[in-house]
Design a protein around this nucleic acid. Structure first.
Length: 118
DNA sequence: AACTTGACGAGGG
DNA sequence: CCCCTCGCCAAGT
């Protein structure tokens, strides 16, 4: 699997583009969603070079924090952008994923139906 | 071809 | 909770 494959990157970006304003996804969540050949690390890797129309700021790590805060991005650009979208972070730069996590509708491949007669 | 480096994540102390 | 280690996988040296 080649992450430079436009199809590979395209699948990741297609998902990210669907994240609504005010919602978030994690790298790992996207990787699991796409399945075969995708891992959290590789998703993160392609995100560093996202297309202009991709809301890259809506993808954060599983701890509910912006992985970019101590990186090259000016200040806390990612967190700032998210706060402008209504996301609330605590003083340690963490947000409530339970509240903001978004799950796309059309991508369930192996849905686990909670059996009513369990 | 070996070794290091990440926009990652789960698990143990 | 915070910190560390380890598994992961592609890129850069």
């Amino acid at each position: 699997m080649d992450v430079n494959d436009k199809n590979y990157r395209g699948r990741v970006f297609d998902i990210v583009r669907q994240i609504p304003k005010g919602k978030l996804m994690t790298y790992g969540q996207i990787a699991i969603l796409l399945g075969e050949g995708y891992t959290a690390r590789t998703v993160g890797y392609v995100m560093h070079d996202a297309d202009k129309d991709v809301p890259w700021q809506r993808v954060i790590n599983s701890q509910g924090m912006c992985s970019t805060q101590h990186l090259l991005l000016p200040h806390n650009k990612q967190q700032l952008l998210l706060e402008q979208e209504g996301i609330v972070f605590n003083e340690k730069g963490k947000c409530n994923l339970e509240e903001y996590r978004w799950k796309p509708e059309g991508y369930e491949e192996e849905d686990e139906q909670p059996s009513l007669f369990g």
